[in-house]
Simulated scan of single mutants.
Amino acid sequence: MAVPKVIYTEEVWRRLLTPEQYHVLREQGTEPAFTGKYWDHKAPGLYRCAGCGLPLFSSETKFDSGTGWPSFYAPVAPEHIEMSDDYSLGMHRIEVHCAACGGHLGHVFPDGPPPTGLRYCINSAALSFEAKEAA
């Protein structure tokens, strides 16, 4: 199922996002390792795009990669993320974007745990967290 697109002008994005969120989501920035609010976050719940609220990752797929950024082995739905080639640092990486608003989330690498073997290395500034209700 296609994800509806969220399109705002850069002026609107600047009003909606903090400067750090804007830098990461709209300018493909990266927060320093071990500084984001979710890199060592362990509460159960759902990680959403900080730009548009699209559900992206579940705490059930989060793991400690030792990299200093939140890492997940799978998105909540494959259609909620898009990927593109990134050669910005003189090497090839796969950039991960929110499928709804196009916001830069981070990168995906082929060195994650089973069952996917993938590591979605995501900036905390690109995420908001929705805690799971206690049963």
Rank of each mutant, 00 (worst) to 15 (best):
M1I: 09
M1G: 12
K5F: 03
V6Y: 06
V12S: 00
V12G: 01
W13D: 00
W13Q: 01
R15K: 14
L16V: 00
L16N: 02
L17E: 02
T18N: 09
P19A: 04
E20M: 15
E20K: 15
Y22W: 01
L25E: 02
E27Q: 13
E27C: 09
Q28I: 00
Q28Y: 06
Q28V: 00
Q28P: 06
T30R: 04
E31S: 08
F34T: 00
K37L: 14
Y38Q: 10
H41D: 07
K42E: 13
K42S: 11
A43P: 01
G45W: 03
L46P: 11
Y47L: 13
Y47K: 12
A50V: 07
A50D: 02
A50E: 04
C52S: 12
G53F: 12
L54A: 14
F57K: 13
K62R: 15
S65K: 12
G68Q: 08
G68P: 09
W69L: 09
Y73G: 03
P75H: 05
P75E: 12
P75C: 11
A77Y: 10
E82D: 11
E82N: 10
M83K: 13
M83E: 14
D85L: 13
D85C: 10
S88T: 13
M91I: 09
M91Q: 08
I94R: 14
C98S: 10
A99Y: 03
A100W: 02
A100K: 08
C101L: 08
C101N: 01
H104W: 06
L105C: 07
L105Y: 06
V108Q: 03
D111F: 04
P113A: 04
P113W: 02
P114R: 13
P115I: 07
G117N: 08
L118W: 11
L118Y: 06
Y120E: 07
Y120R: 07
Y120G: 05
I122M: 02
A125Y: 07
A126Q: 03
S128L: 13
F129P: 05
F129Y: 03
A134D: 10
